[in-house]
Design a protein around this nucleic acid. Structure first.
Length: 493
RNA sequence: GUCGAUGUAGCUCAGUUGGUUAGAGCGUAGCACUCAUAAAGCUAAGGUCGGAGGAUCGUUCCCUCCCAUCGACACCA
């Protein structure tokens, strides 16, 4: 039976331009997807956009647009990210406003309802007459006063909502956690989830009154309610696989494909607890791993428009177009993959990006390629390259633990391995001085340079999932024994 | 407040089941080479390993307390 693999990002909520934090998540998932493809897996890679809910509804009204038109505009911006970041072209892009998804969400709801995990209950919402808005618990102080209108107590409004019987799934969730010690990665996030579960689960509301907020998936059999956006959005991870159909792609990728879900740390609970409980309630198998990313700050502060430190992925790629040409997307990929911590919060600035570019791409990888290939062409060196099959195995040509690091989603550590190899090739050239040897013993020089070329090829090979275009360029040059016509990465002025 | 982390060279971080001079990359200064994108290589400067106690022959690495920073503690996609 063929090996299958499933990986998905979270679906970003489309109330703002694509954030570099999501670009990082998207790139990481892409690296794993590409890596698994190289390993011979049949890979299903999912991403998309989350497009329902109150926030988008009110924003659309403000912009004088229909909600659909409003989210259509954003969906394109997010879809464009795939091109910008050179994401593998076979990526599936699902929108929660897709007709199939909405139907799937309704079937999912019905299944959970039939299993007895959805019930109707009076729900008390908080309403600030100053803001003329409903308030959540985090938007009021301990005396139930609005944080914006200080001292003004909110009013309580009773409405009927559907609730999800989360609390009744605690035991099953606990059993699942106990049996899967690496379910959430990294483990400190898993510990948070275990503590959360231990503190006890409360049922939560999963619908809204249509009259107030119609922008959602209608609750099956009750036109007066729409699903709360969380409930509908989470179902995308399986609706993209054809759910409610349980054969074909669903069986192939969800059941057999060890589903991996990437998310940001603000999504840990939704992915690793609530969604898993929902799956149990619908009699469906759990995810295999939830991989949680940290946030990207800039200059030690959270990115925000008012501080003016927001870094837009489109701007970054545009900025490197002039010096790196079609490899510009790889510059951003390189930086986010190697210079951001694999699991914890990281800091990104244009200065550190420029430093990393100059040090490791211009002076490192790019320069190494030039110096090796120049000698290959000058001395007319011949060599035999290893096969893909050789390189996919654990062998001497591949850094120890390289594959393990990727399997554990520590992509930064794997990148560090590759650059250790770049550095050691530079050191080798300096140490063996083939350019001097060539003057007295051309055969020996060819032997040294041939070895360098093979090792450069391996660097290109290993780099494929991380920096696809750069990898392809390097492997092509070594294969064809050609000197690059121009530097891979030009220096910035 | 409760629980959990983190605090190591200018910056980003690694590290030791406790044992002679604490590591890497980037940055800085000097030397030197020419295959290469004035790149690469070598050398150097720079740290009381957050603070205070304790256990130990001995700890940055164990225990206690304190300080600082951060995260989780649910209806914020």
């Amino acid at each position: 039976m063929e090996k299958t693999f499933y990986i998905t990002t979270t679906l970003p909520y489309v109330n703002a331009d694509p954030h570099v934090g999501f670009a990082m998540e998207f790139i990481r998932a892409d690296v794993v997807a590409r890596y698994k493809s190289l390993q011979g897996y049949d890979v299903f890679f999912n991403t998309g956009t989350d497009e329902h809910g109150n926030k988008l509804y009110t924003e659309a009204l403000k912009a004088n647009l229909s909600p659909q038109a409003y989210v259509d505009g954003y969906a394109e911006k997010f879809r464009g990210l795939a091109n910008l970041l050179n994401i593998t072209p076979s990526v599936h892009f699902i929108r929660t406003t897709d007709e199939h998804h909405m139907k799937a969400a309704q079937v999912f709801w019905t299944k959970v309802y039939d299993n007895g995990y959805i019930y109707k209950k009076q729900y008390q919402t908080k309403y600030c007459t100053g803001c003329e808005l409903e308030k959540t618990d985090s938007e009021v102080d301990e005396n139930d006063c609005c944080l914006i209108h200080v001292g003004r107590k909110v009013e309580y409004i009773n409405e009927e909502n559907y609730f999800f019987a989360y609390s009744r799934l605690a035991d099953k969730l606990q059993t699942f956690y106990d049996a899967h010690p690496t379910f959430v990665i990294p483990d400190f996030r898993y510990n948070e989830m275990k503590a959360f579960l231990k503190n006890g689960l409360h049922d939560f509301s999963i619908s809204r009154v249509t009259e107030k907020m119609p922008w959602g998936v209608p609750v099956p059999g009750d036109e007066s309610q729409v699903m709360y956006v969380w409930f509908d959005a989470l179902v995308n991870y399986i609706s993209t696989l054809g759910y409610p159909l349980l054969e074909d792609d669903f069986e192939k990728y969800w059941v057999r494909g060890t589903p991996v879900q990437y998310c940001g740390k603000d999504n840990t609970r939704q992915q690793s607890s609530m969604w898993q409980a929902m799956l149990i309630a619908a009699d469906l198998p759990q995810s295999e791993h939830i991989v949680v990313n940290g946030f990207i700050n800039s200059g030690g502060q959270k990115m925000s428009k008012s501080i003016g430190n927001v870094i837009n992925p489109y701007d970054v790629v545009a900025r490197f177009n002039g010096v790196a040409g079609e490899l510009a997307s790889d510059v951003l990929r390189y930086y986010l993959l190697r210079h951001m911590n694999s699991f914890e919060d990281s800091d990104m600035t244009n200065e550190s990006l420029d430093d990393a570019y100059t040090a490791n791409l211009c002076n490192g990888l790019g320069n190494l390629t030039s110096r090796v290939m120049k000698m290959v062409t000058n001395y007319e060196v011949e060599y035999l390259l290893p096969t893909d099959a050789d390189l996919l195995e654990f062998n001497d040509a591949v850094p120890e633990d390289f594959h393990t690091k990727i399997d554990q989603f520590d992509l930064k550590a794997a990148m560090d391995d590759i650059w250790r190899e770049v550095n050691s090739l530079d050191w080798l050239i300096q140490n063996k001085e083939p350019f001097k040897v060539a003057k007295t013993d051309i055969d020996e020089a060819r032997r040294i340079v041939g070895d360098l070329a093979i090792r450069l090829y391996i660097i290109g090979f290993l780099l494929q999932p991380f920096m696809p275009k750069t990898a392809e360029t390097i492997m092509g040059l070594v294969k064809e024994k050609k000197n690059p016509e121009k530097p891979l990465f030009n220096r910035r002025n």
